[in-house]
Nucleic acid binder design. Structure first.
Lengths: 186, 186
DNA sequence: CCAAAAAGCTATTCACATTAGCTTTCTGTG
DNA sequence: CACAGAAAGCTAATGTGAATAGCTTTTTGG
């Protein structure tokens, strides 16, 4: 019988499929193995363990999201860039809810994840510089922005907002609030 | 040999100990059984399954946190109450990081959890009424507030804020931003 | 063409959740 | 007080998933 032709990247591809369809908690080596037509232990030839696979998935997702955000803010500046950033953040999470949930909120001792996160931070700080925020003030502003965006989409994706009121309206209010807040800080 | 004298509540007590010391992911029936001096399967006499145990734990934590927030806002109103609410929210999470992480962001089909969450929502809406917000506007404001608080403490507790800048300062900025935002909406 | 690396596989171990079925301890009622 | 039945516990067993060991097959480079 011919080989499956796997590689770490291919395993991550399949893992992303599992995550998309069944959520991050269902990402198991058996599930990935079943989709690749390979026995579960064979996957250890490509990833060290399930933790590494999760890390690799998280990294891919973070990079993908960073790209999407980068595109969204490209060519914009000031409040408009902040609004675009917030919009793109939420759109990514809503379009890929399981992928978003597959990203840990912190790099947890994974240098590659930390680096990917650093790129996102750099992009955010660039946007804030366009709002007149630099140095320490920009760091505090970026944290607030991230907290607001992350908090909102985590709750939205998990179904944490029970009431029927329109979520787009809520998010618009959050955008306005944050943008006004940034203006204050500048 | 005498009985262990367990009960659903006692099992939850022990489970909270496990959560506090080893985090929500380490909450297993074996861990709880070991602490109670009982064999793991015996726990099924008190809880239906591990999922129910997690729900019961989450409910206890949510109620405990709701109490803490209720105390914090008691006797205050307006911006001061909002500031106290935000302060107490963060304090609870920082003092009990694993318990905070043990709460799912949504009731996920658990009516008891939903009810506990409803009480918290009621308290929040009461605070906002004191800021001149009612009806739909209050719902949108409450969501924004929750998103900001939850997002911040999730990231703080997980170690998601890498840089060395002072987190108290960041949170003060977030408080100010949200309070200004609420004033706008009113 | 062949040696060795790479990629698979089967068998096995361990942890945890869960079920089944048996035994022991309480408890309340005659 | 006795004892029947409920409640609470136990052991044994199953299923799933992670992980390791050691063997076999496929590639590939010289």
């Amino acid at each position: 019988m011919p080989r499956a032709g796997l590689s770490p990247a291919a395993v991550v591809d399949v893992a992303l499929g599992v995550v998309d369809e069944q959520g991050p908690d269902s990402l198991t080596l058996s599930a990935v193995a079943a989709r690749t037509g390979v026995a579960a232990p064979s996957l250890y030839k490509h990833v060290r363990n399930i933790g590494e696979l999760r890390s690799l998935v998280a990294r891919r997702v973070l990079e993908e999201m960073t790209d999407a955000l980068g595109e969204a803010i490209m060519g914009r500046s000031g409040d408009e860039a902040v609004a675009a950033l917030m919009q793109a953040w939420r759109r990514y999470a809503v379009n890929h809810p399981h992928r978003y949930a597959a990203m840990p909120p912190a790099p947890l001792s994974d240098p590659a994840l930390a680096e990917a996160g650093g790129k996102l931070m750099t992009a955010a700080l660039a946007v804030l510089r366009g709002c007149g925020l630099e140095g320490e003030a920009a760091v505090h502003a970026a944290r607030c922005l991230r907290a607001a965006m992350h908090g909102f989409v985590v709750l939205e994706v998990a179904g944490g907002f029970g009431l029927p009121e329109d979520l787009d309206t809520t998010y618009r209010l959050l955008q306005k609030t944050m943008i006004d807040g940034l203006r204050q800080g500048a």
